[in-house]
């Protein structure tokens, strides 16, 4: 990928990702509402919410907390840009983690109990989801011999065929990342939660909007991860992503929120079985069955 292409891809991601994710959030809310026998909000509701939040008064607990949110947004965007210009998958994952750590630090800095508990839970979720993300990069490496998104992208064969475990694992972890039940520990899009709004409790108005925006960028990036499994067949990819997203909404609507122990244990076990299992099988297959 040459420089012009890279810059174009980066710009496209920066501009198009929030639009796409906002629409997706709108569809999400409508489908959720329909599942609950409601009409639901208009499709553009997430945008109304976002722009409204930007117009609200700026209030904060202290002068430093929101500075970290800027880091959250910036590094999530950087992770996405690195991904969509075809860069190193591991760097993408680390940049994404860096962004999340900034978010968590912002919540810690507020020094308020609910945001603190939310931050701790967010860290648990990070710990639960991180191995699977790294493992998926490893899976791509074993399958294609490269960590570069560009190389993986341009492979002619369908990766889902040899990496089904990785795909399943990523879908599992996506539930955590999208903050869907049963894994919406740290914060939730719904109102009633034992820790109020958790990690976002102390952030309001424009700061909350920044968090939402960063979350949108993150969503598109994660969907990009899943896209890689179907890269040669774009239509199948779109179909599969739609199915996955629908599945997430369905899970959100048919599950209670679980305990952190359960979230951590299950996602590590799932990662170890589906992800690592897939990896080891591939490893032995590639060596012609001889250990």
């Amino acid at each position: 990928m040459n420089l012009t292409h890279a810059i174009l891809a980066a710009l496209l991601y920066i501009v198009a990702a929030p639009v796409l994710a906002g629409l997706l959030a709108g569809v999400d809310r409508i489908i959720s509402a329909r599942m609950q026998a409601r009409i639901g909000p208009p499709l553009l509701q997430p945008f109304y919410d976002l722009f409204k939040l930007f117009q609200k008064e700026r209030i904060a607990v202290n002068k430093t907390g929101h500075f970290f949110l800027l880091g959250y947004l910036l590094f999530t965007i950087i992770a996405g840009v690195e991904f969509f210009i075809g860069g190193d998958l591991l760097i993408v994952i680390f940049a994404l983690a860096l962004g999340s750590v900034f978010f968590v630090l912002g919540a810690f800095a507020a020094g308020s109990p609910y945001s603190h508990i939310g931050a701790e839970r967010e860290l648990i979720q990070l710990m639960a989801s991180e191995p699977m993300l790294i493992l998926s990069a490893m899976g791509f490496y074993v399958a294609t011999g490269s960590f570069q998104v560009h190389d993986i992208w341009s492979r002619p064969d369908l990766l889902i065929v040899i990496l089904p475990g990785m795909f399943a694992g990523l879908v599992y972890v996506l539930t955590i990342k999208l903050r869907k039940s049963p894994f919406d520990l740290a914060t939730s899009h719904h109102a009633h939660q034992e820790i109020v709004k958790g990690i976002t409790t102390e952030f309001s108005g424009p700061y909350l909007a920044v968090i939402e925006l960063a979350h949108w960028y993150e969503t598109i990036l994660l969907l990009g991860f899943l896209y890689l499994f179907f890269a040669p067949w774009p239509w199948l990819a779109v179909l599969a992503l739609a199915a996955v997203y629908f599945l997430e909404i369905l899970a959100d609507n048919t599950n209670a929120r679980l305990y952190w122990q359960w979230v951590l244990r299950s996602s590590w076990i799932f990662t170890a079985v589906a992800g690592a299992g897939n990896l080891v099988v591939l490893y032995y297959l590639s060596r012609g069955g001889t250990p």
């Binding site: 809310r29 609950q36 409601r38 009633h192 109020v196 709004k197 409790t201 309001s204 909350l208």
Partner: peptide, 22 residues
């Protein structure tokens, strides 16, 4: 908030947190 009245049609969300509410 519930299906019969469904105020989310108007974008109304019950936030439960004063810092998010209008």
């Amino acid at each position: 908030l519930t299906p019969r009245y469904d105020v989310e049609r108007f974008g109304i969300i019950n936030t439960g947190n004063p810092k998010h509410a209008d």
